[in-house]
Design a protein around this nucleic acid. Sequence first.
DNA 1: AAATGTTAATTGCAATAAACAAATAACTAT
DNA 2: ATAGTTATTTGTTTATTGCAATTAACATTT
Lengths: 241, 241
Amino acid sequence: MFSNGYLLLTTKENMTTTEPIPLQSTHRQPLVMVDTALFTILDQRLCLILARRKDAPFEGVLALPGGFVHVQEDADTEAAARRVIHGKIGIDAPYLEQLFTFSGMARDPRGWSVSVTYYALIPSSLLGRNDGVETFPVDALPALPFDHGQIVAQAVERLRGKATYSSLPAFLLPGEFTMNDLHRIYEQTIGARLDKASFRHKILDQGIIEPIPERFRVGAHRPAQLYRLASRMLTAFERRI
Amino acid sequence: MFSNGYLLLTTKENMTTTEPIPLQSTHRQPLVMVDTALFTILDQRLCLILARRKDAPFEGVLALPGGFVHVQEDADTEAAARRVIHGKIGIDAPYLEQLFTFSGMARDPRGWSVSVTYYALIPSSLLGRNDGVETFPVDALPALPFDHGQIVAQAVERLRGKATYSSLPAFLLPGEFTMNDLHRIYEQTIGARLDKASFRHKILDQGIIEPIPERFRVGAHRPAQLYRLASRMLTAFERRI
DNA sequence: AAATGTTAATTGCAATAAACAAATAACTAT
DNA sequence: ATAGTTATTTGTTTATTGCAATTAACATTT
């Protein structure tokens, strides 16, 4: 059957030649769900988007948006996460990344379960009015059901870890922003002070943003150069905006 | 029922007061398994431990050690991974970390599945003789079944990413090692040349290892100081060794 | 015993990057 | 015009890193 030694990846071709194996685990299988930590910036503070649960357990309680994985419909758990996010706040997240998979007996009163968690960065400009959706600064969250507190803690840690040396926080901003906007966002996500001059150098050297020619934000001060994410930083999705 | 507003975490206490909710997902649930990428150093090369599969599909083919999650027995997926590793090579992995959760229709001929993957670092000194277990340099692997090639690629990437600024590679070494041993391991895992002097400085400044007083490795050269992982770097498990 | 070879460990210096402090620029509002 | 506000730049100082050369402590060979 495997005369060529090894098979690399199960493609659709060899799936049809492989007879379907109805093998089931001899053990009861857990529930598989996805939960999402959605970050945004409001009033220059790093915030989390929470939604009131529609079903038991914890019906009506604020929690991370989540749901079961739909084996028939979802291509994978990331697709499930996108579906959950779209269903909850009506938009596609510009930045979405798998965080961690939580599991065990204790996390859900329904029993042993697995939750594949994702975190996403969402510019507040994309947020409309949504029923049952509320935002909270990450340093002033309500108590959360299940192990969602743990999930949030890990999401914040990951975001902070990545923010220091990547373009991540820029995804929390709208298309145009000033150097100071970006500076504030980085300070918020990292949770510490950053030197303005050094920050400017690092960001520009890395080439993750580019100035928009002739575009400035005016006000009671020297006009501020407007920047945008460098085109090479954008996903195919973003470029379409 | 939730008169105090919110519940933080589902503890054993409130699990008994919460009536068991036999709620099931309205959708068919996927198979949940764990797969492990086990790294070790042999002949000063970064290697991966593979095992021949005992069951269909791909029976007899070399693959990442893995298995189904046992809802009854496993505390969580990490416990399942530890069980798999122990069953396969008979030891507990000194360093074990969750890598990524792969999912979807295409990865397993049995249908839609979820694999929570882990990677582990195992000093070759702990490896005994094991039936059906073989090691391969990561840059000379056989073709692998399922999506295991992808899993390995991601594991190597993660290891390389973390190695640069952490104590990770030190877990691939036995209890005592020289600065040169460590230097070689870092070069292997990172896959690039590192300046010896700078390396020495960085490692010692970070305090991830400490010299063992009065202990040297002798040979046809100036005796080399022996080091060990600084005690604060060790897990509770490691300290017992 | 002296010379040689080998690897360990240290040192010095140039290049680079980061942190800190301050000055200057370009406006608005009064 | 002047004061106020924020943007941007310019130095100066302080680590960090990369590279090359040097010294140390042996074993081995002659």
